[in-house]
């Protein structure tokens, strides 16, 4: 399969998923809309991590720190400082992005397992700080976070159906935006660094600057997801920043298919929906979830989207 065909397939998968999400949205009840919002937020978070892991080859176990930074910034700006929520949303992305610049300045100097360790350590530092922070309610968390007032657009975001539609739209925009980034010269350089960092450096590419830029962009988008999560739950707590949140996103990226963007979205939907329905069936749902992950990784080492593309390739050869 050519790159062009692969790209078309991904776009087609994205279109199918967007259509399925809209169809579900149109038919869902209150709780369905809650689930849609949850899936869309997690999908944004997973896509931001995919930019790091899949495109740039930087495996981070501390990505939840930026998710949390976005959530806590939204809570701090709205609840503690009284900012309007529509302003807090972009401001939270800036805060998360700035944190990513600072963290990234250290982290991008390292590669491989050392990069994993430093991101994990910094994620835990952020968690430890928030767990003890009196300002943000410590482990008890902070409530009363408002959603933006979009009455001017005829939207009532306190209504789950409007909120889920807004979040869904944002997820689609993030997908289209990241698709552009990955396809741009900047994205191509990141992919090159992923494939062979030494050669890129030998070609005179300022590798660290590119990595830092990717890290910052991923952090800012994770901050967007965090801000939306804070608005969705009207509540924040250090739970958002635990390393298991990072780990879960990493699993979603791997299971969905690294570097494909649509794969992690499908993975996010699968994990949240399977988690919801399995936990209704059995107390040991995590066991079955684990089995599913093992099965996917064993059968399709390149994730769900990777398996689909291989299938399309074989089908294409047979047809052609």
């Amino acid at each position: 399969m050519t790159d062009l065909a692969q790209d078309r397939l991904r776009l087609a998968v994205a279109a199918v998923m967007a259509a399925a999400a809209l169809l579900w949205w149109a038919t869902a009840g209150f709780f369905g809309h809650e689930l849609i919002a949850q899936v869309a937020i997690f999908a944004i978070f997973a896509m931001s991590l995919d930019l790091l892991v899949g495109t740039a080859g930087m495996v981070s176990l501390g990505h939840a720190a930026f998710f949390g930074a976005g959530a806590y910034a939204t809570a701090g700006l709205t609840v503690l400082l009284g900012w309007p929520a529509w302003l807090a949303l972009p401001a939270s992305m800036v805060v998360a992005g700035l944190l990513a610049v600072v963290v990234g300045a250290f982290a991008v100097r390292l590669a491989g397992v050392f990069f994993i360790m430093i991101t994990l350590a910094i994620g835990e530092m952020v968690h430890a700080y928030l767990f003890r922070s009196r300002t943000f309610g410590g482990d008890d968390g902070l409530g009363g976070i408002p959603r933006p007032d979009l009455g001017a657009l005829g939207l009532t975001l306190d209504d789950p159906s409007h909120f889920s539609l807004a979040v869904l739209t944002l997820a689609l925009l993030v997908y289209l935006g990241l698709r552009q980034v990955v396809g741009s010269p900047f994205g191509q350089v990141l992919a090159g660094i992923h494939r062979n960092e030494a050669r890129m450096r030998a070609l005179g590419c300022p590798v660290r600057h590119y990595k830092l830029a990717a890290f910052t962009l991923a952090g800012a988008i994770a901050g967007l997801a965090g801000s939306l999560a804070a608005q969705h739950n009207n509540f924040i707590s250090p739970e958002l920043v635990t390393w298991t949140t990072s780990g879960e996103a990493l699993i979603v990226v791997i299971v969905g298919g690294m570097g494909t963007l649509v794969g992690p979205v499908a993975g996010a939907a699968a994990v949240i929906l399977a988690g919801h329905y399995l936990s209704g069936l059995t107390e040991y749902w995590m066991f079955f979830m684990g089995l599913m992950f093992v099965a996917v990784v064993l059968i399709a080492g390149d994730g769900l989207q990777g398996a689909l593309e291989r299938l399309a390739r074989r089908f294409g050869r047979a047809a052609g």
């Binding site: 009840g29 209150f30 709780f31 809650e34 949850q38 968390g141 999560a229 739950n233 509540f235 707590s237 739970e239 958002l240 919801h276």
Partner: peptide, 15 residues
Amino acid sequence: KPSVGLTKTKKLVYQ
């Protein structure tokens, strides 16, 4: 987990 507790609460109320 706060987020899980909240989701389950919404499920109980809505569904």
